[in-house]
Every structure is written in C-alpha cells, then in structure tokens.
Design a protein around this nucleic acid. Structure first.
Length: 207
DNA sequence: AATCGTTCCAACCGCCGGAGC
DNA sequence: AGCTCCGGCGGTTGGAACGAT
C-alpha cells in the first residue's frame, strides 16, 4: 500500500526497520508525546501514523488471529448497547484494538446483522439513523484512573442512578430492552455490573 | 495459467474535544 | 473568548491475498 508522501513524510506500509525504531523509542520514552516520537525515533512519519502503528500493531499483548465465539458475542452485545463506539467495545476485549473490532464488524457482522429478519423492501438497519447515548465524561483529575460501580455510587450518594434518568426514546436498546427489564435501581446496577467501569466510561446521564 | 470478483485489514483522512495560552 | 496544538476517534480507502471461473 505504498502511497505518495506529502511534505516529505513517508506514508504507506511500515517496514521492519521502522517498526524497530518505533518500538525502541516507545520502550525508551514511554507512550505519549506522539508529536515528539518521529524526531526521537528518527522516523520520517507523522505523529498520527506513529501512534496508530503502535496502538494497532506493535503494542505488546495485542491478540492476533480469528475472533473467538465469545468475543463475537461480546461485540454484538456491546454494539447494540454502544453503537459504533469501537474504542469502548475494544476496551472490553483484551488484546483487541478498536481497528480490529471495527474491521471485523464491517467485514463479518454488519451484513449479518442487517439481513437478520429484515424484509427485502425494508431499509437496512445500519442505514437507519439511531441516536446512541454517548458517554459524557465528567471532569476528572489526572490522578483519577479507575472506578467501580460502587465507587461511582459513592461519588453520587446524594443521587443514585435511576432508570428514570434514562430519557425516553434515546435509543432502541433503551426503549425495547432496557426499560422492559425492571424499574429498580438494582436492575440498573446489575445491568452495568458486568462491565467494569474506567474513567472513560463514566458519564452523566442527560436529565 | 490467466482473469475476475471478493474478502481482509493496515493505514490514511478528517473531524472533534480538551488543554494551554 | 478565541486561537492553536495535541491526542483520540470513526469512517473510508486501497493493496494484498484468496477463491472461483
């Protein structure tokens, strides 16, 4: 996939030598400060290219190969819940990157999901605009790294999350599935207890 | 063996939000 | 308030690999 370069920056597939340079740079300086990485590593690549290569390919513990059945099941469930929030979905699949999940969905699952039980003349599901509830991160200090549901509850002692906090008609999942489960706080928490929270996934429900 | 169509996936692009000034 | 920089994200592209004819 060799492409042309703009402003002298290399594009296209990474070579073994570039991978070595990038890997040793990250090992030495750590992740982050991507704008400095090309200079530090001696790479003629843009910061974004370096970051992407590291996150999607070079980072340790990245799992390659076919998705297992339980992983596929998790993707389907989380996509129903979160929509195309690939980074959040990938966060629940150890070793998988957002790019992996997105590619897998686009090549394997999208057709599957859009064809299931749909009449010929009906608009494919993925073309229907669905409003997905998106996380609205709180302002969290940099020292704040992770939270469990209990911690989240503690932070909000004066205001436990309630099913009623979910605005009506926000998403088909909320309407068709979630609100049918139960009207209790316990059910709300049960639903989320399977998903351990991190700072990124804490949000305020719009009221 | 050659050609064509399809699938896979690495990488690019444009956009957005937060932080800092 | 407005601007710039940066990190991060989702959508899309296009070349390689593979299978069918």
């Amino acid at each position: 996939m060799q492409k042309g370069s703009s402003f002298g920056l290399r594009k296209g597939s990474w070579t073994e030598e570039e991978d070595v340079l990038l890997r040793s740079c990250v090992q030495r300086y750590g992740e982050g400060e991507w704008h400095r990485v090309p200079q530090r590593a001696g790479l003629n690549r843009c910061r974004k290219s370096c970051r992407l290569r590291w996150l999607n390919y070079l980072k340790p513990n990245i799992k390659r190969g076919k998705f297992q059945d339980d992983e596929v099941d998790m993707i389907i469930r989380l996509h129903k819940l979160l929509g195309n929030r690939w980074s959040l979905i990938a966060g629940r699949l150890p070793g998988r990157t957002a790019n992996d999940v997105k590619n897998y969905w686009n090549t394997h699952l999208r057709k599957l999901m859009t064809c299931q039980g749909k009449p010929e003349n009906e608009k494919p599901q993925d073309l229907v605009k669905v409003e997905v509830i998106r996380p609205r991160p709180r302002t969290i200090s940099k020292n704040f790294t992770s939270l469990g549901v209990e911690a989240y509850r503690e932070l909000n002692e004066s205001r436990e999350p309630r099913v009623h906090d979910v605005p009506p008609n926000r998403s088909p999942w909320i309407d068709d599935d979630f609100q049918l489960r139960s009207e209790t706080t316990e059910a709300w928490l049960d639903c989320w207890s399977g998903l351990s929270f991190d700072a990124e996934s804490i949000w305020d429900w719009p009221v």
